[in-house]
Design a protein around this nucleic acid. Structure first.
Length: 224
DNA sequence: GCGACAG
DNA sequence: ATCTTGTCGC
């Protein structure tokens, strides 16, 4: 898809016009989580997508997909490396989740088109970006109590929310993906943070992808 | 030119 | 992301 660095940036600008900012239409009953891991030699990647009930977080379904790595990691262009496998895995689900949490930024991106936006637009699904660290933007430090938050800014534009998902831990970065709205996204993500720093759907996807990575059979299959 | 920089 | 050991704290 993306030939090179420059082409990828133009593609982001083009695709970003397809992103929509709307509130979720109905009460959330299922939440998806997506994450990616790489083979020991770095030539292949595997994506995991899980769907949990909400609230309750019972696992309803899990799928995965493997693919050859075709793009290097470049800050700002992560989606060209991870979106393809993530989308391929998500398409294997028998039932679309009401909203999907993606391990990376959404709008908190130089061209407002991080991994969560890219995956959301390609699937046509509501997505939320939930990153473990900052890509860009400035912010004050939220209070130490769970639920404390500060706006993530790029100049005078709000691009996301820095959220304390548990007491006294490093904050997470929440931003709009596709078909979602920031305040609603932050409330949902916070409710998904039951006992750990990361929301349950992302933790489940991460645990799954970690066990897949350790499974030799996952990497020993032939090319399709 | 220098530093920053999701996973 | 991945490579790596012990270690501090609840």
């Amino acid at each position: 898809m993306a030939r090179n660095y420059r082409h990828a940036i133009e593609l982001q600008k083009k695709l970003s016009s397809l992103r929509r900012r709307v509130r979720l239409p109905k009460p959330v009953r299922t939440v998806g989580g997506a994450d990616v891991a790489f083979s020991p030699d770095g030539r292949y990647c595997v994506a995991a997508v899980v769907v949990l009930s909400y609230p309750g977080f019972e696992e309803l379904e899990r799928v995965h997909s493997r693919m050859r790595v075709t793009f290097p990691y470049i800050p700002g262009l992560l989606s060209f490396r991870e979106a393809p496998v993530m989308v391929a895995a998500a398409k294997k689900l028998s039932c679309q989740p009401d909203v999907m949490l993606v391990d990376g930024q959404g709008m908190a991106h130089p061209r407002r088109f991080g991994l969560a936006c890219h995956v959301g637009v390609e699937l046509g699904w509501p997505t939320i970006g939930c990153a473990k660290s900052r890509l860009m933007g400035t912010h004050r430090q939220p209070g130490q109590r769970k639920g404390c938050r500060c706006r993530l800014m790029d100049g005078d534009e709000v691009i996301g929310t820095v959220l304390r998902s548990r007491e006294a831990i490093k904050c997470i970065y929440v931003s709009e993906g596709h078909l979602t709205e920031l305040d609603q996204a932050v409330r949902l993500v916070l409710r998904c943070c039951v006992r750990y720093r990361l929301p349950e759907p992302i933790r489940s996807a991460h645990n799954f992808v970690t066990q897949l990575r350790a499974n030799r059979k996952v990497w020993n299959q032939n090319e399709l």
